[in-house]
Simulated scan of single mutants.
Amino acid sequence: MAGTVKKIGILTAGGDCPGLNAAIRGVGKTAILKYGMKVYGFSSGYLGLINGEYRKLNEKSLSGILTLGGTILGTSREKPFKPQEYEEYIGSKPERILENYDRLGLDTLICIGGNGTMKTAGKLQGMGLNVIGVPKTIDNDVWGTDVTFGFDSAVNIATEAIDRMHTTANSHKRIMVVEVMGHHTGWLTLFSGVAGGGDVILVPEIEWKPEILKDYLLGRLDAGKPYSIVVVAEGIKIPKKGRKRKQESAGTAVATMIQELTGIETRETILGYIQRGGSPSPRDRMIATELGAYTAGMASNKEFGRMAAYKGYDLISVGLDEVAGKIKYVPREHPLIHHARSIDTCFGDGMPDIIRRKG
């Protein structure tokens, strides 16, 4: 039938995370088996689209990848519209993308990625390409969707690490600081911190004070609790009194500050890239599969210039122009923060009600 979507391209861009292959599989298999489309996978994110590096995907090549970490297509942080490059090359990268899109005869391009990927996808849509976005990130900070795949797996990994910190902290009667990923938002830190029984949780969205942290930790010691777990997001601001040295991580800066203020032996652990690797959790496999299959349906229905998303348990789509340039921050009044405070978790912004230092 004239106007039917017959060819689609898929790419994965930005940082890797668990569930990317499950999403590729969800899009590709649904497109092939349900809608009879031809599917092409671009290598290394937008870089493959610029250089015309792609391969045709079929049902066989999409089998057996559901549980695999990483991405069979590869990824990169290439930003075709990056200002300095755009000025230097007079728009050659976007133009090459358009040429390769037209040369291959694509009817739509599926871009799987986080905030930066969605921003670029929106710009490509503005150039005349038919683009659909699929949200992924361990940070869960893509605006317009309640959840992204990759987040649940990272929460599981970080929580297991925090669990293990309890035993060594208790054995040595010391404070353990665990740094979790999250440059701008604290979703991963909040969820893993609560799940792992963190005594202190520091997120970028909540301003904290060293004095409050000091009083809380010494209060725990006075109350007969000889060790504490402090979970911090890598993107938290460090108050002037604990200003970190150049190239020093937030976890190291906080650990140094705590030991200086309390005199309690303190050690830090930086989880780093381990949070992004490995096989996706069952929940992330389901989320990625659902988003992928739904996206293939969006392509068939020509819902271009939009991103697949969750609203509660329902799958919806939102405009890429609404998503681009926005970040989904943790609300200060998030229910999980409220409930964590009720069990005496400290967020560094006020003295908890339960533990008080002895006079």
Rank of each mutant, 00 (worst) to 15 (best):
G70Q: 01
K82P: 03
Y35M: 06
R77S: 01
Y35L: 11
K82D: 15
Y40T: 15
P83D: 02
L49V: 09
Q84V: 00
E78I: 03
E87N: 07
L73Y: 04
E85L: 07
S76R: 01
Y40W: 13
T67F: 01
S63H: 12
E88H: 05
R77T: 04
G41L: 08
Y86R: 08
S44I: 09
K60I: 10
G52L: 07
L49S: 05
L57T: 04
E87A: 08
E78P: 02
E78W: 05
I50W: 06
Y46D: 02
E88P: 01
L57S: 06
K38Y: 08
K82N: 10
G70L: 00
S61Y: 05
S61A: 11
L66P: 07
E85D: 12
K60V: 11
S44R: 15
M37N: 10
Y54S: 14
E88N: 04
G48S: 13
G74I: 03
V39F: 02
P94G: 11
L57I: 03
L57W: 09
L73V: 02
S43D: 13
S76G: 05
L49R: 05
L73T: 02
R77Q: 04
E78L: 08
S63Q: 14
K60A: 15
P80W: 05
S43T: 14
Y35W: 12
G70V: 00
G36N: 10
K38L: 13
N51T: 15
S76F: 03
K60Y: 10
F42A: 14
P94V: 11
G91T: 10
L47A: 12
S43F: 13
L68S: 04
N51K: 15
G91M: 11
S61F: 04
L73S: 01
K79G: 02
V39H: 03
R55P: 09
S61M: 12
E53I: 13
S76A: 13
L66W: 00
Y54T: 14
Y89W: 09
T71C: 00
